[in-house]
C-alpha cells in the first residue's frame, strides 16, 4: 500500500542535485548516532510480536516476519530520506518543518496542478498504518486485562475518547511534537528495556524456583 507513495517521490528527482550527498560522513559518526533516537520511532511496532506471540500459529516464523517488515519500512524511509537530501540543499533543509511533504509541492503535470493536495488525502490512509497497530494493541490489551475476548466495545470507547480529546483540546504542532517525543522514549523503553527486565525476572525467578525444589 505504501509502495505507490514511493513512486511519487521519484518524480521530484528531476530537480535532484546528487552533489548534495557528498561528503558522506561530513562530521563523523557522532551526529548520525544521536539521530537514531528519533528515527527509531518509525521502526517500533515489532514489540507487538511480543504480545501476539502466544496467538501465533507458526511461532518459528515470527522473528522472520519482524525482520522482513522492518527491512521494508527501512527501504521506504531510506528512499524518501535520500530523495529529500538530494532535492534540498543541506543549508535549507533545516528551515522546513516537514521537508518530505514540502518537496511534493513541486509536482505538476499538464493536466493537474497542485497534485500534493490530492496526494495528501490518500496519504492519510498510508500514514494510518503507523497508528493502527498501536490502536489495536491498546484495545486488545485492555480487553485482555478485563478478561474478555471481544475487543470491539473497547475499540468504540477508545475511538470516542480519542475523538473527544481531539475536538475539545485540539493539539498544536508543538504539542504534537512533544507528544511524539514522549512516545518515542516510552517506545524505546517498551521495546528494548522492558524485554530485558522481563528476561531478568524470568531468570531470577527460575533461579529461586530451582533452589526451592532442591
Amino acid at each position: 500500500m505504501t509502495l505507490w507513495t514511493i513512486i511519487i517521490y521519484l518524480i521530484p528527482l528531476k530537480y535532484a542535485h546528487w552533489l548534495h550527498l557528498f561528503p558522506v560522513l561530513k562530521e563523523g559518526w557522532l551526529p548520525i548516532l544521536t539521530t537514531v533516537k528519533t528515527s527509531i520511532f518509525s521502526f517500533l511496532g515489532f514489540e507487538i510480536a511480543f504480545f501476539l506471540y502466544p496467538f501465533l500459529q507458526k511461532k518459528e516464523k515470527a522473528s522472520m516476519g519482524v525482520v522482513i517488515a522492518n527491512t521494508l519500512s527501512l527501504l521506504a524511509f531510506l528512499m524518501v530520506t535520500i530523495g529529500a537530501f538530494i532535492f534540498y540543499s543541506p543549508d535549507e533543509i533545516t528551515i522546513y518543518n516537514e521537508p518530505t511533504i514540502e518537496m511534493l509541492k513541486v509536482l505538476e503535470f499538464k493536466f493537474i496542478e497542485r497534485l500534493e493536495i490530492v496526494f495528501f488525502s490518500f496519504y492519510l490512509f498510508v500514514i494510518s498504518t503507523t497508528v493502527l497497530p498501536f490502536m489495536f494493541m491498546t484495545v486488545f490489551c485492555t480487553s485482555q486485562l478485563v478478561g474478555k475476548q471481544d475487543y470491539s466495545k473497547h475499540l468504540a470507547c477508545f475511538l470516542l475518547i480519542e475523538f473527544a480529546v481531539v475536538v475539545l483540546f485540539p493539539p498544536s504542532f508543538d504539542e504534537n511534537t512533544h507528544l511524539q517525543q514522549v512516545i518515542e522514549k516510552a517506545g524505546i523503553i517498551l521495546a528494548f528495556a522492558f524485554p530485558l527486565c522481563l528476561w531478568g525476572y524470568v531468570w531470577v525467578h527460575g533461579l529461586f524456583k530451582r533452589r526451592a525444589i532442591k
Binding site: 530537480y15 534540498y88 540543499s89 543549508d91 535549507e92 528551515i95 509541492k105 513541486v106
Partner: peptide
Amino acid sequence: NTLQVLHRQMYEKGL
C-alpha cells in the same frame, strides 16, 4: 527559476 529553486539558491551557501 521557480520559487522552489530561488529558495534553494538563497539559502545554499555555495551558490
